Simulated assay, not measured.
Amino acid sequence: MSGYNQLFVPGMTASAGCVTPSNELSRAAEVLEWPGITIDEMNLFSQRVAVVAEVDSHAHDERVASGWGPVTDRMAVALWEWEESRATMPPAVVTLRGVIARGQRWQRVLAAAGGFVGFCSTAILLDQSHEPNQHCLMTAHMHGVAVLRSSQPGERPYLAQAGRVGPVATAKPSTLSRWVEELVYARLMDDDLLTAQVTG
């Protein structure tokens, strides 16, 4: 059986088995101290957001070796909850660390980010020309969503207000959360962001 020891992304710098593209969204993730790979333009639950996901390279290696690619069919993932299916369920490769909604109107992006508070940390990134007002900050604080504002090109965004670390306290792993992880895993594979190097 072929072995794999590291994840590579051409033209990007690897860190702790994961890589992060160099752009404003990845700098926002750095400001928020979210580890992992930043994926822009993910369409989840009819919302276009950026996702920060941490990859378990060993689980990815195991799935590559066993032929278990991403499973994006929601009903197929739901079957893993059955006791008789748990023994053959593939290991989870992706852990969601954060979701960022970006835009000009804070009401719109806050509504988008707020839908993911049960999955992971969340944040909104406002354009440089739109400074968050007190209503924005209070509403975001109520939902545990971090608020950032774009800075000059090439600079890290300004953190106007920190948010909750992780999902809401009542959140628990579910078929839905695992399905979202598989969707993110599929996007990483589609974008060639998880290419295992064969070592022999």
Rank of each mutant, 00 (worst) to 15 (best):
D190Q: 11
P21V: 07
D192E: 12
S151A: 15
A112P: 01
R187D: 12
T95M: 03
Q128H: 15
L25I: 15
A196E: 03
V49S: 04
G69H: 03
T122D: 03
T72F: 03
R86P: 01
V147R: 04
Y185M: 04
P70Y: 05
V198H: 12
P10F: 14
P35L: 03
V117G: 06
F119T: 01
S2Y: 02
G118P: 00
A76C: 02
V198C: 08
A50F: 02
A28I: 06
A111D: 09
M142T: 11
T95K: 12
Q152D: 14
S46T: 09
T139C: 02
E83P: 00
L188M: 09
P153F: 05
V168E: 10
P173R: 04
S2G: 00
V9L: 04
Q104C: 05
V77G: 08
V52H: 09
Y158R: 14
P10Q: 12
V198T: 10
G163K: 01
V9D: 06
E131G: 06
P153I: 07
Y185D: 14
A50D: 02
A113N: 03
L32A: 02
A28V: 06
Q107S: 11
D190R: 10
T170M: 07
A65H: 00
A162Q: 14
E181P: 00
F119W: 12
A112Q: 15
R187M: 09
N43M: 09
I39D: 02
V9I: 14
Q161Y: 05
R164E: 01
L193A: 08
G200H: 11
G98H: 06
E131A: 15
D40G: 11
L183R: 12
L183Y: 01
R164G: 03
R27F: 08
E81S: 13
Q6L: 12
R108K: 14
V64E: 14
V71A: 04
C136H: 01
A186V: 00
R164I: 02
R156Q: 11
T199C: 11
V51E: 08
S2I: 05
A65N: 02
M75C: 05
L148M: 14
M189P: 00
A146P: 04
M89C: 15
C136V: 05
V198N: 10
A160T: 02
V52F: 09
A78F: 10
W80Y: 14
V99T: 06
S57I: 11
V165T: 10
A59Y: 02
S57G: 01
T139S: 10
T88V: 13
F119V: 04
G115S: 06
A112W: 02
V94F: 08
V71F: 03
A53C: 13
Q197W: 10
E182Q: 15
T20S: 15
Q107K: 09
M75I: 08
G166F: 07
R102K: 13
E81Q: 12
L110C: 09
E181I: 00
P10N: 11
P167Y: 00
